[in-house]
Design a protein around this nucleic acid. Sequence first.
RNA 1: GCGAAAGUGGCGGAAUUGGCAGACGCACCAGACUUAGGAUCUGGCGGGUAAAACCGUGAGGGUUCGAGUCCCUCCUUUCGCACCA
Length: 861
Amino acid sequence: MAIQEKSARAEVGHPEGGRSGPDERYNAQIVESKWSARWQQDPSRYAAERDSSKKKYYVLEMLPYPSGALHMGHVRNYSIGDALARYMWMNGYNVLHPMGWDSFGLPAENAAISNNTPPREWTLRNIASMKAQMKRLGFAYDWSREVTTCFSEYYRWNQWFFLKLYERGLAYRKKSKVNWCPKCATVLANEQVVNGCCWRHEDTPVEQRELEQWFLRITKYADELLRDLDKLVGWPEKVRTMQRNWINRSEGVLVDFKLDYGPSHHGFGPAGSTITVFTTRIDTIFGATSIQLAPEHPIVADLAAQNPDLRSKVDHLIAEQRRARESGDIGEIEKHGVPTGRYAINPFNNERIPVWVANYILMDYGTGAIMSVPAHDERDYDFARKYKLEIRLVILPISNDPEETMTEPPVPFVAHDGMVINSGMYSGMSCAEAVKKMTAYAEQKGIGRATVTYRLKDWGISRQRYWGTPIPMLYCEKDGIVPVPEKDLPVILPENVEITLTGGSPLLRVPEFVNATCPKCGGPARRETDTMDTFVDSSWYFYRYTDAHNDRAPFDGRVADYWFPIDQYIGGVEHAILHLIYSRFWTKFMRDLGMIRNDEPVERLFTQGMVIKDGAKMSKSLGNIVSPDEMVARYGADAARLYSLFAAPPDRDLDWQDSGIEGIQRFLGRVYRFFVRNTQARTGRETVAPALDPEARAIQRKMHQTIKRVSDDFQGRWHFNTCISAIMELVNALYGAEEAIAKNAIPKPFLRQVQRNIVLLLAPFAPYLAHELWEMLGESSTLLTAPWPKFDAELAKEEEIEIPVQVNGKLRSRIVVPAAANEEFVLERALADEKVQAAIAGKKIVKRIYVPGKMLNLVVK
RNA sequence: GCGAAAGUGGCGGAAUUGGCAGACGCACCAGACUUAGGAUCUGGCGGGUAAAACCGUGAGGGUUCGAGUCCCUCCUUUCGCACCA
């Protein structure tokens, strides 16, 4: 209520007033509606040029999910991107600044269930309202290139890509353990599991299910995805590290240990007679004193089949691992295990070592089996201590001191740069040498091979959901898995589908969809009813912007070639390993298809901080949401945008304060009022007199300094908060000069130049006010492409500078000297200063440090 | 546990290269204009003092003529990774 009263009153303004009368008051609502209406009339206003001779600049903000309304995080993201796009326009670039909708996904289905609205209708309605919000906020998007991923014009190309992947063996179907979110009622990719829970439901533990699924062979590009991270120097180091960790390449050796169950044993189970372990430390193999298997290892299943006691113990370990995974503190659980009573032979020394099952061995990494070397691995050490297994030292530290080398190190000794001992013919070698020789030996004897293991797994893209891209595959009784022929694309997602979160994919219950004809034999076939992960949609959408209406291909490679790579991509860090790794993979695949020539999609990446309120991330459950609509209604779009840039540097979290945006609103009003009071119609000739009075000169200096500060930040740190401070300082200086203006001490043409530059500096940040003032100045050119102001380094220089004078490092006085003064002059003035004299009285100057233009320090005794 | 970033007035934040700590804004205080102020303008605003001195950038050490900034130890917060063999 209070809010409404307030805004109502602000809109009307107040009939009377002190210094600022009614016509001086800045009414953002009226001014912004006026410009908004004008901008709508020219849809090609922000269109990128085709066949331009200008240098291109592709600036992109991550496309939103059409949830229904923008939140402040969006506003911040887009305010950064929009400021940059406008800055680049003003610098003469051919700018591509598009926007679209990541519009497939589960929330649409949830909405369908809770409000009985079809997902498509719900989604399109949301898009319409969010698009209106974006327009009201004044973001300069080229809407002629809008991409909506839930339209068949778009998702048919997802299907087309899928066929290409399938042709090249990069899409395959396999039955495997997959992550299942019970709330989403669908499978999740590894990347979508966060701390053992669903990425969308942080309190819902992910379950494991055995399902037939489609996978994309992203691991084929694992090495390149890792290697090329080094090239991405325009990316935050943090994101590169996260991707490196996620891919987690490790070089090692697979070694076969033959099972030796002894004479009483009758045959092996279906899993065979060999345990293959993966190790990165084959040099320690003579120190292996047991084999440890993951509880879900097939050999364990064989052994447990004959041993009910072992079965129950193993089941216990499996349950424990699952609990740990779900609670997210894998790694914290205590290590324990059970002996199987069986043995395996170390192929290097023919030693019989016991086979155990341990809860710290993961089935989904390496081979799910390790050789345990307690003396040289911390986990193996803990385990061996607990179960009294032998700890055998086979590596010694190397030191320059010969005596030290021979000293036994405390175990576990995990260094890689030691010397091998107790290892037969390998004793005396360095670790590195032993690794080489032992690997060669294993390969020669056929008992092992060098290999590379990744944590990165193939990308499971099947989703048992309705609102996504249908996977263009058919199952024929006679011909098996058959791809839908390219000419039959798109496979259209049917409408009027009953949506529930139980009973598998909703498409299963649509016979017209499921029942199809096999293109090979003409017989009956069943259509794949799973849809694609929505991260497929976002893996290549930014290529579509370059050629958004192509109906013969996803895009024209020649056009994409002009625009790619994206010069600047801006979004939240939460996509560091999801979207940003998938889209790198997709780019490499498209390159290998011959569609594009770039290896990477994004030249520079910027991850903006979150918007925080009262110390917590804005969320509905905490009730600390600030609605952009409300901010626009109360303070205007300019104020909302400007504040989102002013409150903190863009890479840091932003603490939203309502009183802060009021300050920004005041600033905009101050600028406006200054223009209203001091703008005069342009006279014919406008040349700025070369010599200015000191008061005008001070303004001129400040103006050039401000231009420099703002320009520098766009080129460098993007600390728009300080840019805006700088503009505020310039405006404050003009307020201080109003008396001088009144008595004509500031030449009018010069003042006009200052005003013009202020508008240009404001244009990327507060486009509405900037346009209003541009018009007020009588400018007829398009502000969007008006040249960015240049600063003159000479004019920005101070003529007189204040030099702090320190005595023994303590500030004692400040003296004002001409900027060009030399050291002798500064010293002379300093020594003449009373306070300095007092500080050095009776002492001798033993040293002096003069930093030209910065400070003078006298060291006295 | 490992790794990264951060810690500055009542608050958001400045100080880009080791060189005047606290720009700019908020809040607050005072004055002006006012019937009125939640508008606007002007001034004040780290602590301390009558004024100075002096103290002050998470804590403690160090390097330096000089440290918010560099080095060492520690604390706190946030983020990432976490039985990865």
